[in-house]
């Protein structure tokens, strides 16, 4: 029991550090693409410390107060139901508590809490951003769901660990190669999930300042930034497990998640922003068809 608790702390610490570092790295890379020097890699950590070091704060009410708590609980929870390393007892987390559907739905836990918290803030932009985010989410959920269904058909299981187990052996037994259509659909969905350009209308800073967290500051914001590390890490690990053969060692995990994240970053720096209705139609178009094709292919 205590050992497990220790493992969990270790595991969460790992993903937090790696997630935030990854953000730092990406910022650096983006800066270099722009021809800038960019912030130091550890900048996300400094930001978090700075935010928590604010001496005052404001709160609009209980739900506003709890919003970031929900958010980070959602991030940590999502992470804790995903096995991080294949075959590692230390990093298996609580993956025995549920399968891929649990993870898919737990993702919503934090988003819902955040949406509620920012809603109590009373700022119209928060609500507008949430409306955009939810609409976009409902759309990219379709190709992702189809892709997961295709995997369930392919591997005959919903269990993330079993899906990882089935991809062991050679690089060619990764889902990426055995079920490329599902992988493509999921990756496109991931672009939406990560809210990078072209799907960043939710937090469009010039239009609806920063979106849902408009009213958040200080420790609240610090918590949200911490979560960004955890949650990003969790999502990347999930994708790694489902499509890229999982990982058996921490370096392997780091390399793979980095590569996966880079897809999102590349697309992000290359494309301008979609309007909400455009992204809805986009996700329900070609990506959905790819997802359907992936399901049908394994169905037949």
């Amino acid at each position: 029991m205590i050992v497990k608790a220790l493992y969990i702390v270790l595991s969460v610490a790992l993903v937090t550090v790696w997630g935030l570092t990854l953000t730092g790295i990406v910022r650096k890379i983006v800066a270099r693409v722009h021809g800038r020097i960019g912030p130091p890699v550890w900048q996300p950590f400094v930001d978090i410390i700075k935010n928590n070091a604010k001496r005052t704060g404001i709160s609009h009410g209980v739900m506003f107060y709890l919003g970031p708590v929900f958010r980070i609980a959602g991030g940590m929870g999502t992470f804790l139901f995903i096995p991080v390393l294949f075959g590692s007892d230390m990093f298996s987390n609580f993956s025995f508590a549920g399968d891929v559907f649990l993870v898919m739905y737990f993702i919503f836990f934090g988003q819902l809490g955040m949406a509620l918290g920012s809603g109590e803030g009373g700022h119209p932009y928060s609500a507008i951003a949430v409306a955009r985010g939810l609409a976009q989410m409902s759309a990219f959920e379709v190709p992702f769901a189809l892709s997961v269904i295709s995997l369930a058909v392919q591997y005959d299981t919903f269990s993330v660990s079993s899906i990882v187990a089935a991809q062991q052996g050679s690089i060619f037994s990764w889902t990426m190669f055995t079920n490329p259509l599902a992988t493509i659909a999921a990756i496109i969905a991931m672009l939406g999930m990560n809210m990078h350009s072209p799907f960043d209308v939710v937090i469009a800073p010039q239009e609806i300042p920063i979106g849902p967290p408009t009213e958040y500051q200080g420790s609240f914001l610090g918590m949200l930034h911490t979560n960004r590390g955890i949650f990003n890490g969790a999502k990347l690990i999930l994708f790694m497990n489902l499509y890229f053969g999982g990982a058996t060692t921490i370096p392997e995990m780091i390399v793979k998640t980095f590569c996966i994240y880079m897809i999102s970053v590349f697309v992000g720096v290359s494309f301008p922003r979609f309007r909400t209705d455009q992204s809805i139609r986009f996700f329900l178009g070609i990506p959905t068809l790819i997802g359907v094709a992936a399901v049908i292919l394994y169905w037949l």
Partner: peptide
């Protein structure tokens, strides 16, 4: 490039220092 000093624009006064 002031981002190398960790500086960044922030659209809302709540989060700016």
């Amino acid at each position: 490039d002031i981002s190398r000093y960790g500086m960044a624009p922030r659209p809302t006064p709540r989060q700016a220092s």
